[in-house]
Computed example of a mutant assay.
Amino acid sequence: MVAFSLATGLRKSNVTGLCWSQVDLPRRLAWIHPDQSKTRKAIPVPLNDDAVRVIALQVGLHPARVFSYKGEAVAEVTTAAWYKALKRCGIDDFRWHDLRHTWASWHVQNGTPLNVLQELGGWESAQMVRRYAHFSAGHLAAYADKLPTSTGARDVAGVGAVLV
């Protein structure tokens, strides 16, 4: 379920509550119903290779729910097993929701436009998505270079540059 959360950015309740009726593996798509989303709007969830692999491993384990443990639908994930796993990994102060933040940060770092990330994550406002904007500044470099130099030095690589 951790790998699925990192692949989709879904909230904990959306992962634990995901039913087979919400998954279309051939189309590589899942969806969250409006009554299951924080914003009360449906969320389409495109499934990348990692998400498809995780779901494929769950086929046939439970008749209704995608994620199960010993034949029973998973209702809660932050159990003693979760905390023991964090301890084994040397991770302190980490919540399941931090997986969603990691997913969003990875998207920004890899160039996903913020408006696309907003749709992928089902955020209602751009303000919520802007929390991740600081993870990528590469697209700003071209604009920073538009300013004239105040020193007259044009070659900052060192070839003929004179800095004041």
Rank of each mutant, 00 (worst) to 15 (best):
Q58I: 02
Q22R: 06
I32T: 10
W20I: 06
V15S: 13
L86V: 04
C19A: 12
A80M: 05
E72N: 12
W20C: 14
S68C: 13
V54P: 14
A75C: 02
L18Q: 13
L18P: 14
Q22G: 12
L29N: 02
T16D: 06
T39I: 11
T79L: 07
S68R: 10
P44W: 08
R28D: 02
D49Y: 00
L25P: 11
A42K: 03
P46N: 06
I55V: 13
G71N: 07
R27W: 05
V52A: 15
K41W: 09
V15E: 08
E76Y: 07
S37C: 11
E76K: 01
L29H: 02
R40V: 13
Y83D: 04
S13K: 09
V52T: 15
L61F: 03
I43A: 04
V74K: 01
L10P: 08
R65W: 13
R28K: 12
E72C: 10
P34Q: 05
A75E: 03
R27D: 09
V77T: 14
G60I: 02
H62G: 15
P46S: 08
T78D: 11
E72P: 04
G9I: 04
R40K: 15
P34K: 11
A85V: 02
I43T: 09
S13Y: 03
S21I: 05
L61D: 10
A73G: 15
P46G: 02
C19K: 09
F67T: 13
D49Q: 02
L57T: 13
I55F: 04
C19S: 12
G17I: 06
R40C: 10
Y83S: 12
W20V: 07
R27F: 05
V77F: 02
A81D: 08
G9K: 10
L47N: 14
K12E: 15
A81I: 08
R28H: 01
K70M: 09
A42P: 00
G71S: 11
A81G: 10
P34I: 00
N14V: 00
